[in-house]
Every structure is written in C-alpha cells, then in structure tokens.
C-alpha cells in the first residue's frame, strides 16, 4: 500500500491506518500554522498554506475515529479561530464532533435539534443536511432518514453521495426497486465507477434472494453489471466474487428452466433483458474462479503488485472458492 499521509488520505481508511494517522496529532498540534506575532509580523512569519488546513481537517476525522477527542477538540478550536464559527464547513465539523462525543440518544437528539435550527436559518447548507440524515440513521429512525435524504435529493439531485446513501437506506429496508433506482442515479453521474456497478449488481442479486424461483431478468442484470465492473477494473476482487456467485446460481437456474420446457423462455421474449446463454455463463464462471484463485494466491503470498486487497474480502473469496459457492449472503 502506498504511504498514507494526511493531505490525501484514501477514501476508505482501515482502523489501522486511522490509528497511524491520528498518532501524528501531537506533532501537528504543537506547530500552529498561524503565527502568534502581532499583525504585520504575523503576515511575514506564518507558515500557513491551504494544505495545512486540509491536513488539520483530515487529522480531525482520524482522531475522532480513534477516540482521541481532546486532540479533535483542539483542532476544531484552532480551525474555528481561523475561519470563524459561522463558516459552513466549521459548522459541519462541530456537528460531527458533537455527534461523536454524544453519550446517549438524548445527546444525539440535542445535536439533531441543533441541525434543525441551523437549517431553518440557512436551508442551503447541504453538509448539515447530510449530517442530519446521519444522525437519524444513528438513532435508528431509518424511515425518517429516508425522508430526509429524499428531501435533500429533491433539492440537489446531482449529489452522488446522497444518492448512494439513499440506496443503502432503501436496501436496509428491503426496498430493492428504490435502492436500485438510487444506485442507477449514482451511475448516471459516475458512469465508470466499477464499485457503483458492483453495488447495483449486488442489489439486483439480493432482490432475487426473497422470491424462491429467482427472477431471471434480475439475475441477468446482476451478471451484466458485475461483468461491467470487471471490464472496467480487471483486478476487482469484489467483481469476481459476485461474478462467481451469480454464475453458479444462474447455471443451476438456467439448466432447470431449460430442462423444464421452453415456454418459460417464450414468456421472456417480450422482456427486454436478454437472458445469457448457458455456455457463456459457464465460461464466465471459469474466468471468475481462475481469477479469484489467482488473486487469493498472490495476495496471500504478499507478491508485489498484488497487495492492497482488503483482508476480509480475501478471506471471503477463499471461503467462496473452498465452499464451491454454497455461501449465501
């Protein structure tokens, strides 16, 4: 894995990385970027750059993650002193801080009321709107969170983060249709995000889990999206995992329906999702199996160029290979 720094941390930070990042807090806190000298001299002697504040913000997040609330408080105070407490981002950061020190649901409710008040004054503060959704989610009020995020999306329908969050929320409620719709909106903004393709594929797959003869079009769509995510990134472990899972399921379903009769196939002629041929599916399964094996083998032996995979995902992939696809998620 490449060297982790505070200026551009990876989007997904493992607990270990977060701990390493937050260990830098004392050093950064002991060197304030703004100068303590009186006015004209302070202009000359400050070491302040835009980057120093990015570092502060990222350090703030990782100290909160590791429970280092005193450092977080100090960083927050420093940023408030620099940008004023009416700054939109500072308001959000303070909200995050208050959320993380909240001990009980009552505390969280209080934070929530604070957000309501901020939003009454300035309804355009999108990041506070997002925090509001997060608090509702933390309180376990998923329905309210869904309502809040839909209001946010009505006003800002190009917000990828919010669409993804809405998709997760709907999925947690088992509303697969809505979840898939939201995930497709994510794709419309970022058409080449392989993780978004894999997410849609997962949703399609999960939506088939409830009905006992799994619906073929949903499975076929899921297969297509997993294929696309692999086409975009041919070392994407999750994509291969899903591909293997889907293909093994599809093979059994397809051979069932083929042996049953052809009238099922006739019914689906008017459906526009083309059902893949069983030969293709079998080939895809072979590809997925061999690639999964390759990734697991190389990653666990720590070969160069094969690092960076999530440990949990590797273990899951190994189990899938060993169990021959009997794992149901």
């Amino acid at each position: 894995m490449s060297q982790v720094n505070l200026l551009s941390p990876p989007s997904h930070i493992s607990p270990d990385t977060a701990r390493k990042l937050s260990l830098k807090a004392p050093l950064i806190l002991s060197h304030p970027p703004t100068s303590s000298l009186p006015w004209p001299l302070s202009l000359l002697f400050s070491r302040e750059t835009p980057e120093s504040w990015t570092i502060h913000e990222n350090l703030f997040y990782s100290s909160l993650r590791t429970g280092d609330e005193t450092s977080a408080r100090q960083i927050l105070e420093r940023m408030e002193a620099r940008f004023g407490d009416q700054n939109e981002r500072i308001i959000t950061l303070r909200g995050i801080y208050n959320e993380s020190i909240a001990q009980s649901n009552a505390d969280l409710e209080r934070v929530f009321d604070g957000y309501e008040k901020i939003l009454r004054e300035d309804p355009t503060n999108m990041s506070v709107r997002k925090r509001r959704v997060a608090v509702l989610k933390a309180l376990g009020r998923t329905q309210d969170a869904i309502t809040a995020v839909t209001v946010l999306l009505q006003n800002s329908p190009t917000d990828v983060e919010a669409w993804a969050e809405a998709s997760e929320l709907y999925a947690s409620q088992g509303a697969w249709g809505q979840a898939i719709y939201c995930a497709e909106e994510v794709l419309l903004v970022m058409p080449n995000a392989w993780s978004a393709h894999a997410h849609i594929a997962t949703l399609h797959y999960l939506s088939t889990a409830s009905n006992s003869p799994p619906s073929l079009p949903a499975l076929a769509l899921s297969l297509k999206h997993f294929c696309r995510s692999i086409e975009l990134n041919d070392s994407y472990l999750r994509g291969y995992y899903g591909l293997k899972l889907i293909t093994s399921k599809l093979i059994s379903v397809l051979s069932d329906s083929a042996s049953a009769s052809n009238k099922r196939g006739n019914n689906q002629d008017d459906d526009e999702v083309p059902i893949p041929k069983i030969a293709t599916v079998k080939k895809l399964e072979e590809i997925a199996t061999s690639k999964l094996g390759e990734i697991v083998r190389n990653a666990s032996s720590g070969k160069t160029g094969w690092t960076g995979y999530d440990q949990a995902e590797l273990i899951a992939a190994r189990e899938l290979l060993d169990g021959g696809g009997k794992i149901e998620r």
């Binding site: 309804p123 419309l188 696309r228």
Partner: peptide, 29 residues
Amino acid sequence: KQDLPKIRQQRSLVRGVNLRTNANVLSPS
C-alpha cells in the same frame, strides 16, 4: 449565496444533462 429553489433548478438541469450523456449505463427500461 444562492437560495434553495435556484440551486434546485440548476442541479435539476444538470441531472438531465447527466442522464443524456451517461444514458448508456442504464438498461432500456
């Protein structure tokens, strides 16, 4: 600062443009 309806108007338009440019990721239905 723009007020909320203005933001909504502008971003809704962008959404349409996004739909047009990236329509090929969606299934026909």
